[in-house]
């Protein structure tokens, strides 16, 4: 049986961690001036978190889009509404699947890389050495990585959406014979700017959350091989849960 004490303890631990990460976010934002003073550092991290994630994001986007095309035509043909395939796929991708799936993939690809990199720097005293050299590791190491991640995720989401829509178009129009004109015109008709903004807002929030969790876990990793491994695992688990919870909260607030 679950002890009530352990539930309270777990809850307190969670709240403690939430508080610590919000405090850490404040610290990072205070040191984020480095993004303006030395934009190169952030650009490097956009490359690491963003450009290097492109392959996995595009491949996943393509297949998600293609399966949406298949399922969409199958479901809509029962209602004799294949013409709205373009609109329905675009809405699903822009509002939900795009931001959420990209964020989950981002946690697996870029979040783990961030957490283990920073965790290893902690374990090998590199962060300590910087402190002693009078160089603030939050400013020099953490802030550029956080900014790079937070900027990358919305951009990756855009790429995911575009590739996804093209995948659905390829299957729907090219393979299954949905009318090409209807595919695009219905999309134009039913997708409003607010839908696009909703997706951008979500992916921006997910970018901040996913990057914060990754750098927080890495920075606070126990400085052992096991500790770094644990930090990496926790990054993926925590990010996944937080993304899905945030998704519900944001959707409920916006609708």
């Amino acid at each position: 049986m679950v002890q009530p004490g352990s539930i309270v303890g777990g809850l307190l631990g969670f709240l403690g961690k939430l508080g610590a990460s919000v405090y850490f976010l404040g610290e990072i934002l205070r040191q984020s001036g480095i993004g303006i003073a030395r934009p190169r550092l952030v650009v490097e991290q956009i490359h690491n978190a963003g450009v290097l994630s492109l392959v996995i994001i595009m491949t996943s986007g393509l297949f998600v889009g293609m399966v949406l095309g298949l399922q969409g035509v199958d479901a809509l043909s029962r209602l004799r509404q294949e013409d709205i395939l373009g609109a329905s796929v675009a809405l699903v991708l822009l509002k939900e699947l795009g931001p959420v799936v990209t964020a989950l993939l981002f946690a697996g690809r870029a979040g783990t890389a961030l957490a283990s990199e920073i965790g290893l720097m902690r374990a090998t005293d590199q962060l300590s050495a910087m402190e002693v050299m009078a160089i603030d590791p939050v400013r020099r190491i953490v802030a550029p990585r956080f900014l790079g991640g937070a900027i990358s995720l919305p951009l990756l989401t855009g790429v995911f959406n575009v590739v996804g829509i093209l995948g659905a178009w390829f299957i729907g129009v090219y393979v299954l014979g949905v009318d090409n004109g209807a595919f695009w015109s219905q999309m134009q008709e039913y997708v409003d700017p607010e839908d696009i903004w909703e997706g951008i807002f979500k992916s921006a929030a997910f970018g901040v959350a996913a990057s914060l969790i990754a750098v927080f876990e890495g920075y606070n990793a126990v400085p052992t091989a096991e500790g770094v491994g644990l930090a990496t695992t926790r990054t993926v688990v925590t990010t996944s849960i937080v993304i899905l919870m945030l998704d519900y909260v944001i959707t409920a607030a916006l609708l």
Partner: peptide, 26 residues
């Protein structure tokens, strides 16, 4: 700390920079 230098037990060199850049880092 600018008046101090410290040598760590495991060197604590920055692993993504070469020797020259490690020394140039500060």
């Amino acid at each position: 700390r600018r008046r101090m230098g410290m040598l760590f037990q495991n060197s604590a060199l920055l692993t993504d920079l070469d020797v020259f850049e490690n020394v140039a880092f500060p």
